[in-house]
Amino acid sequence: MTLFLNIAVDGIAYGMILFMISVGLSVTMGLMRVVNLAHGGFALLGGTFAHWFGQELGLPFWPAALLAIVATIAVSLPLERLIYRRIYGFGDLQQVLATIGLTFLMIASVNLWQGSSLLSIPLPDSLKQSVDLGFRTLPVHRLVVIAAGLVSILGLWLLLDRTLFGIRLRAAVDNRGTASALGIDTDWIFMAAFGLGAGLAALGGILGAEILPIDAYYPVRYMVLFLIVVAVGGMGSISGSFVAALGLGTLETATRYLVPDYATIVFFTFVIILLALRPQGLLGKAHA
């Protein structure tokens, strides 16, 4: 029972991080139909900024994290305007090549700026403390991660389901041409969605640094993981990303606890079976 609870807590915390980083990817892939391999780069940028603000400028954790997210969004918006906007119209392969090129540039920039070593983002004492859950003690950090994930999905749901922006975004996802003809400024929607996704990725990168450590090669190392979450969840589906991230996070944690030697094999076998049975993902739409 204790083992089960351990797996559940660690798995859910891990899954929340996967969700925060992947959900932006899912939205951009569903919305702009762009295979954005550079998405993990925004998590890297977030982590790098947080490291810089915290370590070199000496800011406390929370202001540093907040500034890092703002900085990441500030980088992502011009990038969308100048580069991504042109990429949308390309074929799949050109998109893959262009976003891989961008990933390389991001890695090289971080490498040039901060070097290739591990970029630590030290947690404040308040997050390092442990709380007693009855069956084990848990760092407060994990609880904060879980809470942040819940707040993200709740916030996204409110934003998409209850606001005018959300209605327009969903209209643009369903059919860009019609949405545009109805007078919705899809260019602006795209940019806002892109910035939102980049900001969430930065948040996930910063909070997840304990579990997925930040260094220059971060985007390449975890690229496959984030893409798998999107593929399993279904492109463009936020609830799908949530279910997939929690499911895969728990699955990976469970295999590491139960069959540590064969964790990767079990994990990928499960992904293959799942995708073979549901090629459009858990909650993806069947079209295209």
């Binding site: 892939m29 893409l227 798998i228 593929a231 990767t264 990928f268 992904v271 995708l275 073979a276």
Partner: peptide, 20 residues
């Protein structure tokens, strides 16, 4: 049986399993 992103992910998964 699949295409697009799903096919890409499946092919990566096969290579990862071989590697392991």
């Amino acid at each position: 049986r699949t295409q697009g992103l799903t096919l890409i992910m499946l092919s990566i998964a096969v290579a990862s399993i071989c590697l392991e």
